[in-house]
Design a protein around this nucleic acid. Structure first.
Ligand code: ZN
Ligand code: ZN
Ligand code: ZN
Ligand code: ZN
Lengths: 144, 144
DNA sequence: TCACGTTGCGTAATGTCATAACGTCACCCC
DNA sequence: GGGGTGACGTTATGACATTACGCAACGTGA
């Protein structure tokens, strides 16, 4: 799929521009996430990495840690899973902050928005450093 | 604390009105959550239950399942923890849907809002059945 | 060129979170 | 009193994640 290749190339540029090293292992994990096109469990990534060297949990968790810190991937908290960031990192709009995820429970597809707006009804004086926003339901294809 | 007693009484009424049985075990777990005043881990609840009978994981997870289904408690997904619902269940405003949580990372205090509004930028045709919204940061007391 | 700090990753062990599966008892309804 | 249901005890296991240690590669300055 050309989209996947494009996303990996964009990630490559994204990292070189920022002095981050997208090592083969990290690139491979990102590739698996992109190919999956939705949330993937860490141990499933682990299984996918196996045929090519017996990988252990820390291997994949270290890669995921790098990718999520860099903004190239997101953890889906309510699923204990991980998904590739869908925002174009080659554009002038890096996904530095929190993402708002729309996850279809039927087909597993994920859509993503940047969290630009702050909550209108936050407690007085509350300073937000990180937000987790995940919406579950049916995408337009799966809604009957 | 009178607030805690009030919340438990309100939960009692809430359950009787709906034909739900707030058993001693469930009430005890809710009591622990209310007393904690913030997110509590399942195994910490387990430890707190021990002196009075050796409790096993399924015991506390069943109680939490009941409480969360009833809307009397919420799971804090990003912390793998659970917190008592702060909305007054004796009022005409049950916390049936999703809650928006503001969690102070310094003092552990939790504030809660009902999720009334839908996202303005959801994908076309996406039908939301459940939302997870958790904001992390500093409450007004802890912000320096 | 060599010592030294840093980074990435292999490996083993462990820790943390959650559920499956089965049995028992109390209760309600007919 | 037979049968269904719901709540909970108990044992075991599964699923998710981290700690700790070691080593090899790399850059940097002496
Ligand atoms: Zn993103
Ligand atoms: Zn779908
Ligand atoms: Zn609530
Ligand atoms: Zn605080």
């Amino acid at each position: 799929m050309s989209t996947a290749i494009h996303m990996l190339d964009a990630a490559e540029r994204f990292c070189t521009e920022r002095g981050l090293s997208l090592t083969p292992m990290r690139r491979r994990v990102l590739e698996l996430l992109v190919e999956a096109g939705g949330p993937v469990k860490a141990y499933d990534l682990l299984s996918a990495l196996k045929p090519g060297g017996a990988a252990q949990p820390p291997t994949v968790y270290r890669a995921l840690d790098f990718l999520t810190r860099a903004g190239l991937a997101h953890k889906v908290e309510a699923l204990n899973a991980y998904t590739a960031c869908l925002n174009g990192h080659d554009e002038d709009d890096p996904c530095t902050g929190s993402a708002e995820l729309f996850i279809c429970e039927s087909c597993g597809n994920v859509d993503e928005r940047h969290m630009h707006r702050a909550p209108t009804d936050a407690p007085e004086g509350f300073v937000i450093t990180r937000s987790v926003v995940e919406h579950y339901g049916q995408c337009v294809r799966c809604a009957n």
